[in-house]
């Protein structure tokens, strides 16, 4: 083998090795739990007012100082909403106490005509006594879902039955009331817990 061929070959090999190493490093960064769920820049929420199942307001103040895992649903939903709440029950049971202490779990009902705060109280506490249910006027719910890049629609089927459609993602709000991460459905307890813990570990309140 001539000298120039040797140099060219070793160059090609080096480039391939560096390329592979970079690719693998990127892969492992992407698969770190929570990374793909986190927003590039946390989005501070603006004032909103819903009513929690304890009849106190659910507003921006109530989100501050705690992490909040929140999703949209309604109590007449027999399949997805109870399934998600069951997964969240397991998340709550398996979080270390010091983490659980400053985590709140919130179901926001987008079906205020049928879900009163009182009926939400009974519904969410069936899953876990500490879970919070909340709802509000259609206007307040529309503004709130929009802040969280979510949406819902209320329709009536041909038989006259209400049909409620809603975003399936679960939202994570940080203790500064900033929309921080978005978990796509389907929701599984292990994945939510791993992503949530990883996001908290890498969290710094001062930098995005």
């Amino acid at each position: 083998m001539t000298q120039p061929v040797k140099i060219t070959l070793s160059l090609i090999i080096s480039i391939l090795l560096i390329g592979t190493a970079t690719y693998l490093a990127q892969q492992s960064a992407n698969t770190t739990p929570g990374n793909e769920a986190r927003l590039a820049t946390p989005k501070p929420l603006t004032a909103f007012q819903l009513t929690a199942h304890d009849l106190k307001p659910l507003n921006i103040e109530r989100l501050k100082g705690k992490w909040t895992l929140l999703f949209f649903g309604y109590t007449h939903c027999p399949d997805v909403c109870p399934t998600t709440l069951t997964e969240l029950t397991q998340v709550a049971e398996q979080l270390p106490p010091e983490i659980l202490n400053n985590t709140q779990f919130v179901l926001v009902s987008v079906d205020p005509q049928r879900d009163s705060p009182e009926s939400l109280a009974e519904y969410v506490s069936y899953f876990n006594e500490s879970f919070l249910g909340a709802t509000g006027s259609i206007g307040a719910l529309t503004a709130f879902t929009r802040q969280l890049d979510s949406k819902f629609s209320l329709e009536t089927d041909p038989a006259g039955e209400p049909v409620v459609n809603h975003s399936s993602a679960m939202l994570l709000i940080d203790p500064q009331a900033r929309y921080y991460a978005r978990f796509k459905a389907p929701h599984y307890a292990e994945e939510i817990r791993a992503q949530y813990l990883a996001l908290r570990n890498s969290y710094s309140p001062t930098t995005p």
Binding site: D79, V80, K151, S153, V163, N165, S167, S168, A169, A185
Partner: peptide
Amino acid sequence: MHRTEQHDGMHKM
């Protein structure tokens, strides 16, 4: 009988 579907990030029955 119903089916839960995901369209465009929305849950629909």
